[in-house]
């Protein structure tokens, strides 16, 4: 069953939160994980749920040789 939009946002947020420090997730990893559990979820929903998390500042894009979606943290390199 496809999730309603606000539930999808929370579902993705929890996924990103759970992955913190273990695996860096790409947007496509998230989409694939959602579709595995909810095969009828429209892809565009996932796209815009990620956008909502990013626009609200709950998640951020990071770049380490590839772009990932993570929970916000302070740049290590900013210190020493």
């Amino acid at each position: 069953m496809a999730l309603p939009k606000d539930e999808l946002v929370e579902y993705i947020y929890k996924m990103v939160e759970a992955a913190a420090g273990k695996k860096q997730l790409k947007a496509k990893d998230i989409e694939k994980a959602v579709l595995k559990e909810h095969p009828d979820q429209p892809r565009n929903d996932v796209k815009f749920a990620i956008k909502e998390l990013i626009d609200g500042g709950r998640c951020v894009y990071t770049y380490f040789g590839g772009s990932f979606i993570e929970c916000p943290r302070v740049e290590g390199a900013a210190k020493h």
Binding site: V60, T62, Y63, S67, A78
Partner: peptide
């Protein structure tokens, strides 16, 4: 130079490349 991977503007994941000196 050190590479940073986190900074950006709100909503975007593109267009900003974090850069820090290793001799700050």
């Amino acid at each position: 130079w050190k590479h940073g991977g986190i900074v950006g503007v709100l909503g975007y994941g593109s267009g900003i490349i974090g850069r820090y000196s290793d001799l700050p």
